[in-house]
Design a protein around this nucleic acid. Structure first.
Length: 710
DNA sequence: ACGGCTTGCACT
DNA sequence: TAGTGCAAG
């Protein structure tokens, strides 16, 4: 049956804040003479004046639109000022805008829970702040309401014109017998108006905002009165707002789904959508989307504001339209190198500034020449520009082989290999924070990374690893897989998901001739690896630091699995793969702090699915971990071999799991650590709690199911 | 033969 | 999971 929870319990106060033509404002701040002038930001001026990506409101009045070319804009608005996006490494560089966005976020996140939704938008959950305000200093007790708040647009408010508007807004704010939800909204609007003023004072940027009872409505509202204004959506005006609204104006319905609603169901406004039962919508669009649509039409959205001030991934890409498409391996490599350089730089600053590490590197390509899509590829990330470049290029070859392999192709001497890359992008995802207790460790990392990249050397800074939080079986455990370049005799590990592509050099030879691409020899690659290995004489070498946000599960103990046997280094194989690290005589020494109890699976799932449950004060202990790879030593006594109950019998034979108790750590072991880390580890060995960063269940249904059951 | 470049999320 | 596709701005 229809969902009822959101309607009744949705007295949250949510704001959406949206910077006005943000890139333009950033440029205007840099160059104040542009203020007040019709201005647009363009990238790549050479072809038809470049493409517009942001347009000032003055320019919009002339009919200038985003997606116009610079020359078109000049036609409709001759006096328009066109500012170019900075270019670095042959591509647009958006870092100034990203940084400006961060400035804004740091201000807007002062009140309530803040979610950075894009480079220039945030959502705020102001429920608590609004409730506090209402309890302590409700608007009707205020002597005055600030100007900015008085300029609010309150939907459904009877407003004549001119000065009257402000007067009725004031009355709305001061109304003491208003609906409780409206009072909270009023508080929210006051808070938002103050935040917006702070943004203006501290950054010189204006923004617009919407204040409503959920994200969807807040977002809708923030776009209604721009620039530099805010709009409030009282509960009772929701229906009037939505009914006449063109379906495509709703977030998520601006694309194919919206078109389908129009074409297939004849739905043109949100009001039209009301005539369809939830079941009917589910029949057309599936259970999740169907329910979502049914709710959306009624202004219901359980979507929560996530607490997140930083992006979840970093990417760098470029298009090579039509004639400029990349047709040689060498040109792809060249551009990949540029993209990887940018990405690496951004990863490094994320590490420095936010103590975060990405885990996955992905490559996406577009090929114009064929209907068939070029496959995306990913692998574990290794820090250091050269490493990233190398891995990216390997990913490209892995994709390429798959791509051309599946189609008949006559290559011989033909520069046209049957592909032409029109889009190239590389991205880093699965970014996790290094636990706060490991600051000095991250610093240690940090220095190494810098050293490495500045010397343009390929040093294995981060030995590859894979943190695999397993939720299956009885009780959970953490599994760490150390990774290294695949050498001969490695057994396939079915449990591991990351593999580097195979680089078949025989196959590449044609290309190398044609395109002067010289593949790095396997020996070379190995030597860079063994350089590090050689240094590993008894002392700490490769240090892996890992925080697993998903690991905020209760664990009696954490077990580390590592796989088997040392591999040969001097192989002459022409193939290289990435596979699980298997070292004979290698000890993974592991230190961790652990929770002290375990949960039955249902509770376990509950925590995973419910952000609030685990962020509350009774949240369970976070598992922090830290281990190093040291050769030629036996496990310290405090590493007790165990058999993991979740492994199959065969795996049990191959794997050894070590669990560790923090109070049994061997001082000698500790003393082997770099001096600056020792103290840190000692404090860190004491169990401590950490905020949960676990995402809420993402299915739309998840938002509503809890109430259905209750 | 062009709207470029980034993000995030749902689905499978 | 990794890979694909959609959507937004």
């Amino acid at each position: 049956m229809p969902v009822s929870r959101a309607q009744s319990s949705d007295s949250r106060i949510i704001a959406h804040v949206d910077m006005d033509c943000f890139y333009v404002q950033v440029e205007q701040r840099k160059q104040p003479t542009l203020r007040g002038q019709p201005t647009a930001v363009v990238q790549y001026n050479s072809w038809k004046g470049g493409g517009l990506i942001a347009v000032s409101y003055e320019a919009r009045m002339f009919g200038v639109k985003r997606s116009m070319r610079g020359s078109e804009a000049k036609e409709v608005c001759p006096e328009i000022q066109l500012v170019q996006v900075p270019v670095a490494r042959g591509k647009a560089d958006l870092s100034v805008y990203r940084n400006a966005g961060s400035e804004v976020v740091s201000i807007l996140s002062r009140k309530g829970r803040c979610e950075r939704a894009s480079i220039d938008e945030v959502y705020l959950d102001l429920t608590e702040s609004a409730e506090t305000m209402l309890a302590e200093l409700p608007p009707h007790r205020l002597e005055s309401i600030n100007e900015e708040a008085l300029k609010s647009h309150v939907l459904g408010l009877d407003v004549q014109d001119g000065d009257n508007a402000r007067e009725s807004v004031r009355k709305w704010f001061l109304k003491s017998d208003a609906d409780h939800r409206d009072k909270l909204l009023a508080c929210g609007a006051l808070i938002v108006s103050e935040l917006r003023l702070q943004v203006l004072e501290e950054t010189e940027f204006t923004c617009s905002a919407g204040i409503a009872h959920n994200k969807m409505l807040a977002k809708l509202a923030s776009g209604m009165n721009k620039p530099a204004q805010q709009t409030v959506v009282p509960f009772l005006s929701v229906n009037k707002l939505l009914e006449p609204l063109p379906i495509k104006k709703m977030k998520q319905l601006g694309g194919k789904l919206g078109t389908s609603l129009q074409v297939d169901l004849g739905v043109n406004t949100v009001g039209d959508l009301l005539h369809f039962s939830e079941q009917k919508l589910q029949e057309h669009y599936g259970i999740n989307t169907g329910t979502w649509l049914w709710n959306a039409a009624r202004g219901i959205s359980g979507d929560e504001v996530e607490s997140r001030l930083l992006p979840k991934s970093h990417g760098s890409g470029k298009t090579f339209p039509g004639p400029r498409a990349l047709k040689t391996s060498a040109s792809v490599q060249k551009w990949l190198n540029e993209l990887c350089e940018e990405l690496s730089e951004r990863l490094l600053s994320d590490l420095e500034q936010n103590k975060r590490i990405a885990h996955t590197l992905s490559l996406h390509l577009n090929d114009s020449e064929s209907v068939k899509k070029f496959p995306s590829k990913s692998c574990p990330i290794r820090y250091g520009t050269a490493k990233i470049q190398e891995d990216a290029f390997n990913l490209f070859h892995a994709g390429l082989r798959e791509y051309v392999g599946s189609r008949t192709i006559k290559t011989k001497g033909n520069l046209h290999h049957g592909w032409a890359i029109t889009g190239l992008s590389i991205s880093a995802s699965k970014i996790v924070e290094i636990p706060s207790g490991t600051r000095s460790i991250s610093k240690y990392f940090d220095n190494q990374v810098k050293t490495c990249t500045s010397e343009k050397q390929s040093i294995d800074l981060f030995t590859q690893y894979d943190a695999d939080v397993s939720y299956s079986g009885n009780g959970s455990y953490l599994r760490f897989h150390s990774m290294c370049p695949q050498m001969k005799n490695c057994e396939e590990d079915t449990g591991n998901k990351h593999f580097m592509p195979i680089v078949n050099q025989d196959k590449d030879q044609n290309e190398s001739k044609d395109e002067s691409f010289i593949p790095k020899s396997i020996d070379e690659q190995h030597s860079s690896f063994s350089t590090v290995r050689q240094q590993q004489d008894g002392v700490t070498r490769d240090i892996l630091s890992l925080s697993s946000s998903g690991a905020e599960l209760n664990q009696k103990e954490t077990k580390i699995d590592f796989l088997g046997e040392e591999t040969e280094h001097g192989l002459k194989s022409k193939e290289q793969k990435w596979k699980p690290y298997k070292e004979k005589g290698t000890i993974l020494r592991y230190f961790g702090s652990h929770g002290s109890c375990s949960l039955p699976k249902e509770d376990h799932d509950k925590i995973l699915g419910d952000n609030k449950a685990s962020s509350s004060s009774d949240s369970k202990v976070m598992v922090d971990s830290f281990f190093e790879v040291v050769e030629g030593k036996l496990p310290p006594k405090n590493l007790v071999p165990r058999t993991s109950t979740t492994l199959s019998g065969q795996d049990e034979l191959r794997r050894t799991a070590w669990s560790y108790k923090s109070d049994e750590i061997d001082q000698i072991t500790l003393n082997e650590l770099p001096i600056e880390i020792q103290a840190e580890v000692r404090t860190w060995l004491r169990p401590h709690k950490r905020a949960n960063t676990m995402k809420k269940g993402s299915s739309i249904l998840d938002y509503f199911l809890p109430t259905r059951n209750s």
